[in-house]
């Protein structure tokens, strides 16, 4: 046992010192090597986040950086692995789409302790002293506009349903609060069900099918993202109620913009994932150039797309 202690600890000590020295050497050895940028995204199972991640990586590459995309699969533990990998592999900045407003804070702090800047994209973390900057869609204001349109279209009365996204994501509640900050002032509008479907199209379809069995007389559905709006619409088509129920989404995804043109979906909140992603990559460049005084929160405006103005928009942005 004594032999074990005596031999193992010096060995481990030398190993750790060696690894640290090697990392340091790697960083210092080639100052002209391109900066490495990790794009860590909550999920690549949703086209909106694919656009966000790919645009961030493309813009980083255009700016002369080496970019790699990591998919957290909506799992904060996997997200932690990505952060640890990014730090140990010598990445210089992280463009980050968090999985959970609270659960992701620790991961951002790990990077901060390693002096690696983190730029949050689209989703917020519930801390203002961890990320270098947070570039966020103004979901609340976007859903206020949708709420107004919803009230007008339903003529201030009728039963409706709300389908929420991930309960741990601030965007879920910003959208819901923005919507309700208008709709709740109209007593003729009665919310008969409010359920979450985790921003997932198939889950939203299942949720909508169940709700329709209990509440066949609804007039409207507000969904926290476009994927869920498409899922809800599919359930309405299957139930023969697509003409009776107005569907409202949020994101500005390709299939919903097309569905608005075709009169299937009433409206969506157009976010600008490409603008958010490009801004994050450009902030990383400014950081490498020495800038440090970034605004903690940078809201990106959301625009309502409906059947009257859809010709001015395309998937994920303006024409």
């Amino acid at each position: 046992m004594t032999y074990f202690k005596n031999s193992l600890f010096p060995f481990l000590f030398l190993l750790i010192v060696g690894i640290c020295a090697s990392c340091q050497k790697q960083k210092e050895s080639d100052p002209n090597a391109p900066k490495k940028v990790a794009v860590i995204v909550s999920t690549l199972n949703n086209p909106w986040f694919v656009v966000l991640a790919e645009t961030a990586a493309d813009r980083a590459t255009e700016l002369g950086f080496q970019a790699t995309i990591f998919d957290s699969q909506n799992n904060t533990a996997l997200e932690t692995d990505h952060f640890e990998n990014a730090i140990s592999s010598g990445y210089d900045a992280i463009l980050f789409n968090p999985t959970d407003a609270d659960g992701s804070i620790a991961n951002v702090r790990i990077a901060k302790r390693a002096d690696i800047p983190v730029f949050c994209m689209d989703r917020e973390i519930n801390a203002t002293d961890a990320a270098t900057s947070q570039i966020l869609s103004d979901s609340y204001a976007g859903c206020v506009a949708i709420g107004k349109y919803f009230v007008e279209k339903l003529n201030k009365e009728g039963k409706y349903v709300e389908i929420l996204g991930l309960v741990g994501d601030n965007n879920t509640w910003s959208r819901s609060k923005g919507f309700h900050s208008v709709v709740d002032h109209y007593p003729g509008l009665q919310m008969v069900a409010q359920q979450n479907a985790d921003f997932d199209r198939n889950k939203a379809m299942e949720v909508m099918e169940s709700i329709l069995q209990v509440h066949p007389d609804i007039k409207g559905v507000f969904c926290g993202n476009d994927g869920m709006a498409m899922g809800a619409y599919q359930a309405l088509v299957a139930a023969g109620k697509a003409e009776q129920v107005m569907v409202f989404g949020f994101d500005g995804a390709s299939d919903v913009v097309t569905s608005i043109e075709q009169g299937k979906i009433l409206a969506t909140g157009m976010q600008f994932p490409k603008l958010i992603a490009r801004t994050a990559a450009e902030y990383a460049k400014e950081y490498f150039g020495g800038k440090r005084d970034f605004a903690q929160k940078v809201p990106v405006t959301v625009e309502m797309v409906n059947q009257e103005n859809v010709y001015e928009y395309e998937a994920y942005g303006s024409k």
Binding site: D138, P299, T301, E303
Partner: peptide
Amino acid sequence: NALGIGNI
């Protein structure tokens, strides 16, 4: 006046 970035 605008809060952040975008068209509004």
